[in-house]
């Protein structure tokens, strides 16, 4: 793959309540990357670091080969961001908010903005404080999608949006991708990503658990479902994550082929959905457990 459009090397940031420990991954142009992970894993901090809102303690972020720490302002002309709780100055018309925003972007596409506002059911004359969470997110999306941004950074844009609109939004986002653009999309609703995400990066406890293509992920990660007796005999060391109930256990493995061979006929072995991976991996890395790089 060509050198990645966005590259993050050894990004570290310490906060009183949690810490990002040396995060590294790359996002090539033309692809949509899903960023998933439990609450408090550091997703929002990571995205804010890309936008220069948070100053990392260590590590480097490069966009189109240029260092964001030094050329942040210039590069932000080509990066669009939608935060998880978009806020706007109250009592101002949406049209005014757009004009103020657009004046910073020479490549502003007014026609596209108007059509997006119509599609998203928003009236430019509305005052900003009358909008619900869903409407505020939609308006933030119209601003982000109406300029020639090469990187879209979206922090949980789908909370508060209904299933129909989410499906349309994902289709519309995928349609904007070409060999100059990429999308980084953080969400808790993994079903949205299952259809559309090319790459998936899982962040847990401030560290990258994996950053693969979704197909590689689906081919290598699996869930073994067996009886509790099986757990006694075979033990659970092969599993990355485990959940049990009175009637059986669900074990997460990152090598589904060998699991199929090992448990042939004795247990159910299925492909793991993104939600399975998140739920079975749990919130914090159990001490001393090595990661699948």
């Amino acid at each position: 793959m060509s050198s990645p459009l966005l590259r993050i090397d050894g990004l570290a940031k310490r906060f009183p309540e949690f810490e990002l420990k040396s995060v590294s991954f790359g996002l090539p142009a033309g692809l949509l990357m899903g960023l998933i992970g439990p609450n408090g894993a550091g997703k929002t901090t990571l995205l804010k670091a890309i936008l220069g809102l948070v100053k990392p303690d260590a590590g480097m972020i490069t966009f189109q080969g240029r260092d964001l720490a030094r050329e942040g302002a210039a590069l932000r002309a080509r990066i669009a961001y939608v935060s998880d709780e978009p806020k706007f100055m109250p009592g101002v018309r949406l049209r005014t908010l757009k004009e103020v925003h657009a004046s910073f972007f020479p490549a502003w596409d007014e026609a596209r903005w108007k059509s997006l506002m119509a599609d998203f059911g928003l009236d430019p004359q509305n005052k900003s404080d009358t909008l619900s969470l869903g409407q505020r997110t939609r308006f933030a999306l119209t601003l982000a999608l109406s300029r020639d941004a090469e990187l879209l950074v979206l922090d949980e844009p789908t909370t508060g949006l209904d299933p129909a609109f989410r499906r349309e939004l994902l289709a519309r986002l995928a349609a904007t991708l070409d060999d100059r653009r990429a999308i980084l999309f953080s969400t808790h609703i993994t079903s949205d990503l299952e259809v559309r995400a090319d790459l998936v990066t899982l962040l847990r406890d401030g560290e990258v658990v994996f950053s693969h293509s979704q197909d590689a992920l689906r081919d290598s990660w699996g869930v073994v479902k067996g009886g509790l007796d099986l757990l006694e005999t075979d033990g659970s060391n092969g599993f990355q994550g485990l959940r049990t109930n009175a009637h059986g256990f669900e074990g997460l493995t990152d090598d589904v082929e060998s699991a199929r061979r090992r448990y042939e006929g004795r247990a159910l072995v299925e492909r793991a959905s993104l939600e399975d991976i998140l739920v079975l991996l749990g919130r914090r890395r159990p001490e001393g457990k090595p990661h699948a790089a």
Binding site: K225, G226, G227, L228, D229, A246, H247, G248, A267, L268, E270, R271, S273
Partner: peptide, 9 residues
């Protein structure tokens, strides 16, 4: 009693 539910079947 062992019950294993598969959501892909």
């Amino acid at each position: 009693m062992k019950i294993l539910l598969s959501n892909s079947s």
